[in-house]
Design a protein around this nucleic acid. Structure first.
Length: 789
RNA sequence: UGCCCCGUGGUGUAACUGGCAACACGUCGGAUUCUGGUUCCGAAGAGUCUAGGUUCGAUCCCUAGCGGGGCAACCA
């Protein structure tokens, strides 16, 4: 299973780690059930593709299952057509939900029953306020909400009203069902969220069976629970919704093990246009040809363009899973596409911008056929095709230069170039039209170079692709550039630029009159080719019909050649001896030293309210020698100070005790309060005493403390039971050190060569070997002695 | 502004219980090459947002701050 982890880094992501943890603890009895839950209201895009790869990928890796579920709870936006397109997209990506295809709308009855449970528990009520009033009553982020006058309706009344809502007695908006949670919650979603609304609308699957519809936060968790989903993965923006997810499940009565929600960042791909909001106006304005326009980032567009599904799966691995919303460079997608295509795409020759070449010493009217392999020697594919050669050919206009820049390796007047798989030719003459534009090259071929091999051993550095003029197929080729121009930085408050104004006029480049070798005529139209030296292409499935050949460029080939003229026009590239200034980081980032003492307002307020705390704060500093920070942290609450005082009764090193409480104990707390710990100040004091007395090392003491935080107990007994008594005997230590160093011979070498921070590694290993019982300072001393001698 | 999430090379992610800052993309060299592709080899590039603290030792624990993002629909 480790092999499937992906290629980014050696670790695994937090979601898979969570699942592994759950499997170990037996939380779900080893079951792993994920789901991909789109609303069928549009087309899927690369972002969805990543979610699909994640959820289905996890299911595959853990031997679980992934459900495809349509979250079709909003009758106004959904359609069967969208649902079918999504299935097609998911299959295309290579995933299969088997029998696990579900519709949220099939659960309406069960959801309704759950709502009655909530009402009966007094946890939901029918609110008859208009929408605006509900909104207002929710308060603002800084002020709590106010209760609806209907909030305290009786269970009976609520039940009656809710049933009549379902019965269709009321108009849209007349009532809603709300959860009764907390109008003052800092999480706005918990301020009595709307669970059901009345909507007399036709649902694409349920027809008119329902006129009340559940809202996302209520419905989604139930859908997961009904399907016994274990790990419900969604994107970051649902983070705040998790509390509500849990509230609904807990109160409806889904006990553990029940589904839990986890959020990850999803994909934000550079230059990708994917949201419905963005695409719709572009389609409407005719600026793109449809939802599958290859410049878009919908899955349909990728498919039409020719991107192989494996590339998207690879991208998913490359991007990884995290909680930091970050942008993926387009180069990463390009890499994934090339990586897949390099290994699979047959090579073929095409000339995008043809320049005629007449081979003057090749007899007119005759010709021959070369047998050319589809794959180069270093790619495992097999097969060949016939490539006809004749007196008149086309080569790429950019493969000839009258005044070649330095480093130019193609045809020049009087120079030689190899026609791939055919002959070496020499340019004898350049024919131009009245405007001085090159119209034809007159060349002669080396008759001894058939197949491209040079007999006399001279070097021909350039090889170019070519197509026989009389045999060539004519095609249209489409190249794609980013669809949108960068939006300029707008001053705050300026209206946003309409997306239709940002369309890059050169986002679609149509090349007509492209010459392609005839072999492609008989190929499967789905074939993805590499046009040698130019890129990866595939026939456009929509427009390449009948005799008409239309190719889309999927992605260009990577190129390390840069035409110097194209960049600066200054001819040879001059190596600048002054490195360009790093423009992205302002050199003088304001350091702004923190003048403010590190004391929180909250604790100051606590002391102002409680004179005892204030007194302690002063005494700790003046009499016990604590820093203001330590004193502050110990006097923000009663509990901290009490623990400290209690500890002081058994051990008198105030500074050390403060350190233990301020950093170590607080670090173990998690969500717990100080008073919820199964040990008190006295135990902590005794532990500190053991450390001070040398009976146990500080490191081992931390393990003891961790155990105390879990189950409590007497420190001395724990030290004994855990076998952590300090090892101070230098002989015993010396032995451990010797074995450690013997186990890391190469690291020892590196250390001696100067990588001094490896000392930490050795110390760590020795500490590990003694299970933290050794005295690290002694270890360090012995280690340096031995290593430096 | 209230709450929540997140800060590690140019980019995306790793770093086990606190102990070698790693991998990939990109960039730049070199070798190979009948594709300026591929493959191979190599290099540069971060000392982990900042400032304090705890520790023998901090990317990791504590504190204060800074920065970025999200939420605040009878959408999902």
């Amino acid at each position: 299973m480790d092999e499937t982890k992906g290629t980014t880094g050696s670790g695994t992501d937090f979601i898979r780690r969570q699942i592994a943890t759950d499997n170990e603890s037996g939380r779900y009895g080893g079951r792993v059930v994920t789901r991909f839950p789109p609303e069928p209201n549009g087309y899927l895009h690369v972002g969805h593709a990543m979610a699909i790869c994640l959820n289905f990928g996890i299911a595959e890796e853990f031997g679980g299952q992934c459900h495809l579920r349509y979250d079709d709870t909003n009758p106004e936006k959904e359609s069967e057509e969208f649902a079918r397109s999504m299935e097609r997209d998911i299959r295309w990506l290579g995933f299969d939900w088997g029998e696990h295809l579900y519709y949220a709308s099939d659960y309406f009855e069960r959801m309704y029953e759950c709502a009655e449970v909530l009402i009966e528990k007094g946890l939901a009520y029918v609110d008859s306020q208009p929408l605006e009033a509900i909104r207002e009553g929710r308060g603002t982020v800084t002020e709590p909400g106010t209760a609806s006058p209907y909030r305290d309706r009786s269970v009976e009344e609520n039940l009656d009203l809710f049933r009549r809502m379902r019965g269709g007695e009321f108009e849209d908006g007349a009532h809603v069902l709300r959860g009764k949670i907390d109008l003052a919650s800092p999480n706005m979603l918990l301020r009595d969220p709307v669970l059901y609304r009345i909507r007399h609308a036709h649902h694409y699957r349920q027809g008119d069976a329902w006129c009340i519809y559940p809202l996302y936060d209520y419905a989604h968790c139930l859908e997961d629970a009904f399907e016994d989903v274990t790990h419900s993965v969604c994107t970051l923006e649902f983070d705040n919704n998790r509390a509500l997810y849990d509230w609904v499940l807990d109160n409806v009565g889904f006990d553990e093990p029940r589904p839990h929600q986890y959020e990850w960042a999803g994909l934000d791909l550079e230059n990708a246009v994917l949201s419905k909001r963005a695409i719709k106006p572009l389609v409407d304005a005719g600026l793109v040809t449809g939802w599958d326009d290859p410049r878009l980032a919908t899955i349909a567009a990728f498919r039409r363009r020719g991107v192989p599904p494996e590339a998207l799966r690879l991208l998913s691995d490359l991007v990884g899973v995290s909680k930091s919303g970050a942008r993926t460079e387009e180069a990463k997608l390009d890499f994934a596409v090339r990586e897949v295509l390099n290994a699979t795409a047959p090579r073929v020759m095409a000339v995008l911008d043809p320049l005629k070449v007449v081979v003057t010493n090749y007899p007119a009217g005759s010709g021959e056929v070369f047998d050319a392999p589809y794959f180069p020697h270093d790619v495992p594919g097999e097969g060949t095709r016939s490539v006809p050669f004749s007196r008149e050919l086309y080569i790429e206009r950019t493969d000839f230069s009258e005044r070649p820049p330095k480093g130019f390796r193609r045809l020049v007047p009087g120079g030689e170039v190899r026609l791939r798989y055919a002959y070496v030719i020499r340019c004898d003459d350049v024919v131009k039209d009245a405007d001085g534009r090159v119209t034809e090259l007159r060349c002669s071929y080396d008759t001894a170079s058939s197949g491209g091999a040079v007999s006399d051993g001279r070097k021909v550095k350039g090889t170019v692709q070519w197509v026989s003029a009389s045999h060539a197929l004519e095609a249209e080729v489409r190249l794609f550039e980013p669809l949108l121009l960068d939006s300029p930085d707008l001053p705050d408050g300026a209206p946003e630029i309409d997306i239709t104004e940002r369309v890059n006029p050169n986002s679609l480049i149509v090349l007509s009159g492209v010459k392609i070798e005839p072999s492609v005529a008989g190929d499967d139209p789905e074939t993805r080719y590499q046009f040698e030296r130019t890129g990866y292409f595939r026939r456009d499935p929509v427009d390449s019909v009948g005799d008409r050949l239309v190719f889309n460029r999927i992605v260009g080939l990577k190129s390390t050649y840069r035409d110097p003229a194209a960049t600066t026009g200054a001819g040879d590239e001059v190596e600048s001896d002054v490195p360009p200034a790093r423009a992205d980081r302002p050199p003088s980032a304001p350091p702004a030293p923190s003048v403010k003492p590190q004391i929180s307002d909250e604790r100051i307020a606590a002391r102002a309210a409680d004179p005892d705390l204030a007194a302690r704060f002063d005494r700790y500093q003046s009499q016990l020698g604590l820093t203001s920070e330590q004193a502050d942290l110990l006097t923000g609450t009663r509990a901290a100070g009490d623990m400290f005082e209690a500890a002081l009764t058994v051990h008198d090193d105030a500074v050390a005790l403060a350190g233990w409480i301020v950093t170590e104990v607080r670090g173990l707390l998690g969500d717990r309060g100080l008073t919820e710990l199964p040990f008190g100040g006295k135990e902590l004091g005794r532990l500190a005493g053991l450390v001070a007395g040398g009976q146990v090392s500080r490191l081992a003491a931390k393990d003891v403390l961790a155990r105390m935080a879990e189950v409590g107990g007497d420190p001395a007994a724990l030290v004994e039971r855990m076998g952590l008594s300090a090892v101070t005997d230098e002989g015993a230590l010396g032995e451990v050190i010797a074995t450690t160093l013997a186990a890391w011979p190469d690291k020892v070498e590196e250390y001696r060569a100067g990588k001094k921070n490896l000392l930490g590694l050795f110390v760590g290993e020795v500490m590990k070997a003694t299970r933290g019982a050794a005295d690290p300072q002694a270890v360090r001393k012995l280690l340096t002695q031995r290593l430096d001698s």
